[in-house]
Design a protein around this nucleic acid. Structure first.
Length: 136
DNA sequence: GCCAACGTTGGC
DNA sequence: GCCAACGTTGGC
């Protein structure tokens, strides 16, 4: 089982939208590095959902429901999507500010390459963030 | 609104 | 194949 983080602008599609829908196709990714990660995502993998621009925090945990398939929003079959379902919200959202201020999390891609829209998270980072959320 | 970082495009 | 120009993203 692997761990990931996907970014979304909440004005476009938020954690609440995902909870309302029950599932969604994660489409529109047009970046080679992100696509590599989409391809590696397996059914049952865990995905943090992060709100960029507004909120700037990890809000919830999702699961990969359907592994990669051609992105229906693109005419070019090289671009991929996955289907995700919401699992549980974080007890408290973990803000970018918190992540940046924490020495243990400063190697997260979110900090070092904030533009990558689909990124891997280590198990250690995942466990740590969960624990932080429980504590707050 | 500004700007830094990153990715892509296109001329050479 | 290099690199300048441009567009986009996203934090501040």
């Amino acid at each position: 089982m692997n761990y990931w983080l996907m970014k979304t602008e909440p004005d476009t599609y938020s954690w609440d939208d995902l909870v309302r829908d029950g599932k969604t196709i994660w489409d529109g990714v047009r970046n080679y590095a992100a696509r590599i990660h989409l391809r590696e995502m397996k059914k049952g993998d865990t995905v943090f959902l992060y709100h960029s621009n507004v909120g700037k925090a990890i809000f919830g945990i999702c699961k990969v429901q359907k592994e990669h398939f051609p992105d229906p929003s693109s005419d070019d079959p090289q671009w991929l999507s996955v289907e995700i379902i919401p699992d549980v919200p974080l007890r408290k959202p973990i803000t970018l500010e918190t992540i940046k201020a924490d020495a243990f999390l400063k190697d997260m891609i979110l900090v070092n390459n904030s533009r990558l829209s689909v990124q891997p998270v280590t198990k250690a980072q995942y466990d740590y963030i969960l624990k932080l959320s429980e504590k707050m």
